[in-house]
Amino acid sequence: MNEPWYPARAVVDLDAVRGNVRVLRDAAPGAAVMAVVKADAYGHGLLPVARAALAAGATWLGVAQPAEALALRAAGITARTFTWLYAPGAPLAELVSADVDVSVHAPWGVEEVAAAARAAGRPARVHLKVDTGLGRSGVMPDQLPEVVARLVALQGDGLLELVGVWSHLAFADEPDHPTVRGQADVFDRAVEVAERAGAHLEVRHLANSAATLTTQHVHHELVRPGLAVYGLSPVPQLGGPDAFGLRPAMTLEARLATVKAVPAGQGVSYGHAFRTPRDTVLGDVPLGYGDGIPRHASGSQDVPGAPILVGNGPSARMLHVTGRVCMDQFMVDLGPDATERAGDTVVLFGDGATGAPTAQDWADACGTISYEITTRLGARVPRVHLHAEENPA
């Protein structure tokens, strides 16, 4: 186990990350790839994943929060980096000084970026976020002429460079949904507004993982894959990772803390949502919702919980979370003939090609998406990174 010692770990295969980035490059051959490493690289580890993605040919890194961009720079990573989510008063001057591209996603952001450029003594590189239909952040189309005019004027003053226009699709995971074409049309009109006003755009970017893999007409000069970098399918209804040549990078495993025989009728965990139907053996897995394991992964008498793999090789068994997930642990009914011992390893999720449950299996069991399963994994679970030798600064 990694230091500090903990009875569980997330093993992240950086070879898988590199392979996935190469797949994404091939899927969008006319575009540069921005590997999105926000939220601690979807729980996989910001710096190791960023370096692995760059080694495989990504030329941009994308993060939501300014602190994430500054952490990349503090680690000596100099690749083109874009950050997009901040409220008034954010440390934009630090970002500009650190050569980080920033988004303007609301009219108030224009003057804040200009003030940051003055404080930094250098022009800011700006990407204008347009709300093309997601209803989240972004300048509304009717606000565009005024906002663009101000950005171009500030560019003329040498305070900023309007280098990009970008947006986000609401239904990218349903490639045939009519909103995909509709948002693309709104986006194209926004680009025309910017160019007619005098912007000389370096990049347009609209495609996330799903659109990178399935919707070529929105690739433009830059694609922004996130989930697929980590080997998970952004369109599970169309196919799992193997359907797109992806390989899951994270395996979450733990060591059994206790293994003990109990009688029939034994209540298991809080509320006794499960009672043993026969004499059996229970195992205690030392991961819980304090580690980011969803409480919705719990099992009851009638509904099995999320799947886990117990054992190795031909003798490995797919079992399920038994009873309610606790803050630090959950139980598994190992069956009356169990041979496991305390200290044996169980796999919660990993690469389905190895026989392990997947993050998608856990998402299905919990009524959520695979993004949440990996991203919510707590900081106290050690990350062990394999095959880091190719990583550049």
Results as ranks from 00 to 15, higher is better:
Thr375Glu: 14
Ser370Gln: 15
Arg376Glu: 12
His105Asp: 12
Asp279Arg: 12
Gly343Met: 04
Gly19Met: 07
Pro336Ser: 10
Ala79Arg: 08
Asn391His: 13
Ala56Glu: 00
Leu92Asp: 03
Arg125Met: 06
Ala35Arg: 03
Thr258Asn: 10
Leu222Ser: 05
Leu319Asp: 08
Gly245Ser: 07
Ala194Phe: 07
Arg324Ile: 00
Arg278Met: 12
Arg317Gln: 15
Ala79Glu: 10
Ala32Pro: 03
Asn391Glu: 11
Ala39Cys: 02
Arg224Val: 14
Asp157Phe: 02
Val12Ile: 15
Ala124Tyr: 11
Glu146Thr: 11
Arg247Ala: 05
Gly239Ser: 06
Phe171Lys: 13
Ala117Asp: 07
Pro7Asp: 09
Gln266Met: 05
Ala365Trp: 07
Arg9Trp: 07
Arg189Ala: 15
Val346Ala: 03
Gly45Lys: 01
Gly311Ser: 01
Val165Asp: 03
Leu201Asp: 12
Glu340Phe: 02
Gln237Asp: 15
Val163Thr: 10
His219Arg: 03
Asp344Ala: 11
Val332Gly: 15
Ala74Val: 00
His105Gln: 11
Ala261Arg: 13
Val262Lys: 13
Gly271Val: 02
Glu68Ala: 08
Val259Trp: 10
Cys326Val: 08
Gln65Arg: 15
Thr358Glu: 09
Pro357Asp: 06
Ala153Gly: 12
Ala39Ser: 10
Ile293Thr: 09
Thr251His: 10
Cys366Ile: 00
Val332Arg: 09
Phe330Cys: 12
Phe171Asn: 06
Pro307Thr: 04
Thr132Ser: 14
Ala106His: 07
Ala207Trp: 03
Ala184Pro: 02
Arg9Cys: 06
Thr214Lys: 07
Leu334Tyr: 05
Arg295Ile: 01
Leu134Met: 13
Gly76Gln: 13
Ala184Asp: 10
Asp157Arg: 15
Arg341Tyr: 00
Asp279Asn: 08
Glu192Trp: 02
Leu95Lys: 07
Arg181Lys: 09
His387Val: 05
Asp142Lys: 09
Arg118Val: 05
Pro286Gly: 14
Val325Lys: 08
Glu202His: 15
Thr59Gly: 14
Thr251Glu: 14
Ala243Glu: 11
His219Gly: 04
Val130Cys: 04
Thr83Phe: 01
Ile308Trp: 05
Val347Asn: 01
Leu386Lys: 10
Leu46Tyr: 02
Asp188Thr: 10
Leu206Thr: 00
Ala93Asn: 01
Gly283Arg: 01
Val381Arg: 08
Thr375Tyr: 00
Val223Thr: 13
Ala8Asn: 02
Phe187His: 11
Thr345Glu: 09
Arg189Cys: 08
His168Asn: 10
Gln301Met: 09
Val104Asp: 05
Pro241Ser: 05
Thr258Glu: 14
Tyr270Asn: 14
Glu253Gln: 14
Ala388Arg: 10
His205Leu: 07
Arg122Asp: 01
Gly109Gln: 04
Thr280Val: 06
Pro294Tyr: 05
Ser209Asn: 09
